[in-house]
Design a protein around this nucleic acid. Structure first.
Length: 385
RNA sequence: GCUGGAAUCGUCUAGUGGCAAUGACAAGAGACUGUAAAUCUCUCGGCUUCGGCCUUCGUAGGUUCGAGUCCUACUUCCAGCA
């Protein structure tokens, strides 16, 4: 499905954007989704522990999947044979595939040696065989997967990377973006470019301007929220990138994030987000709740309950009294505590439903605030001020 | 009744003369940001001025510089024979 972003309203005080993503399929049929948007992640063509129906009940727009992982298993040939990713996984809403760029960060073992101009060397985690992913290959795989939005193959650098490393990396990522676009053939698929450059103003500007010159259907800000990156560097990455991105294209902050990151990202002009955290936290027994807490750096962080804690064994109230999710409407903390203690998958499912719904609900509230030019008040209320 | 064997931290378990004592589970807590993650880390006898000190391997004695480990008796359990 081809996508078009429509900027509908900007919050008068903060500039936060309310908009729509309009997808049109080859028969001219459209699907509309509002932004700000949170996109749940389903790396292996499934949002872990959830059926498509359960995901749908959280009211999402786009969901993610992953080029690298589907390349290894089941292979793009199988997905193509199944009629594309939508039919294969029974998800008929929009799908965005990450390019494998994050795996350059998380899986390439020897960054200096494995990342070359031509592409990136990996060793399969499944059978140890050598793998080589190039910008062309990534796009070719995504074309075959037939996702609605393909991402350019980039290098997602570690937060510890220094200026010189980032400068070379940014330049190479731009060359990769050109190579990827040159081989992009799937006319029903959109292609997004990715801005890199760490927390450096000149690198972000250069990366954004060069990426925009190539011309993409949407733009992402990448390389944030890795390792122990501080929030301040993430905000710099956004602030130094957004001024150089076109107003009429959607802006995607990759891999983010926590509720506080969504609120701060939208304030800085971001439209869409994705993050594994709601589903991973869920599998590890944690439920997102309203309010904020501080991490050990003193930064504001998501508030949550660890339902595995003994104190919940006889707590027969829902995770959040006013939450409209399936888990909160039907189950108690004591029950979920019991399921998590017994390693029952249903516990992880209920927490995944709650956490995803929590973030999506947050974006819904942000939209309403932007539409009424009260986003600043919304932020104050969010921080409990 | 006889002959073997066994009793160790909530549970199972390692341990054959230097041991507060192995591993697993359970338990208590923490981490997690484009998913190598239903994973990983820490704690798990008591006290501590963090150097140690104290009390622990069924019970009671004994041998030894030193005993969970060797010896004796007892208690309980298991197996085989009656």
């Amino acid at each position: 499905m081809k996508v078009k972003y429509e900027l509908i309203h900007k919050d008068k005080k903060t500039g936060a954007r309310y908009g729509k993503l309009i997808f049109t399929d080859k028969n001219g049929k459209t699907q509309e989704y509002e932004t700000p948007m949170f996109m749940p992640v389903g790396t292996q063509a499934t949002v872990k522990t959830l059926s498509p129906e359960q995901v749908k009940a959280t009211n999402p727009g786009i969901i993610l999947s992953n080029t690298y992982h589907l390349w290894l298993r089941p292979t793009p040939e199988i997905v193509e044979k199944a009629g594309g990713l939508h039919d294969f996984m029974n998800w008929h809403g929009p799908i965005l595939t990450d390019s494998g760029g994050y795996q350059v960060f998380s899986l390439a073992r020897n960054k200096k040696k494995d990342i070359t101009e031509e592409g990136v060397h990996f060793k399969s985690e499944i059978d140890g065989r050598p793998l080589f992913l190039t910008p062309e290959k990534s796009i070719e795989i995504q074309n075959m997967l037939d996702s609605d939005i393909a991402m350019s193959f980039d290098e997602c650098p570690p937060a510890t990377a220094d200026y010189n490393y980032l400068k070379n990396s940014v330049e190479r990522t731009i060359r990769w973006a050109k190579r990827g676009k040159a081989v992009h053939k799937n006319e029903q698929q959109n292609l997004f470019g990715i801005v890199q450059g760490g927390p450096y103003e000149d690198l972000r500007r250069f990366s954004a301007e060069e990426t925009v010159k190539i011309g993409f259907d949407g733009y992402a800000i990448g390389g944030v929220a890795n390792d122990d990156e501080c929030k301040d560097d993430m905000y710099k990455a956004i602030d130094f990138s957004n001024p150089y991105l076109p107003e009429d294209k959607v802006r995607y902050l990759m891999g983010v994030g926590e509720p506080v990151d969504l609120v701060e990202g939208v304030k800085r002009g971001v439209d869409i987000f994705d993050c594994v955290s709601p589903t991973r936290l869920a599998r590890h027994g944690n439920a997102l709740i309203s309010g904020i807490r501080k991490n050990d750096k003193g930064e504001p962080k998501e508030n949550r309950l660890n339902l595995k804690n003994a104190r919940f064994k006889d707590d027969f109230t829902p995770i959040e009294e006013n939450c409209d999710c399936y888990a909160c409407k039907n189950y108690t903390k004591a029950y979920i505590h019991h399921l998590m203690r017994c390693d029952e998958t249903f516990g992880a499912s209920l927490l995944s439903i709650h956490n995803i719904r929590f973030l999506i609900h947050l974006t819904e509230k942000m939209r309403e605030a932007i539409k009424t030019d009260t986003y600043e008040d919304f932020i104050k209320e969010f921080y409990g001020e």
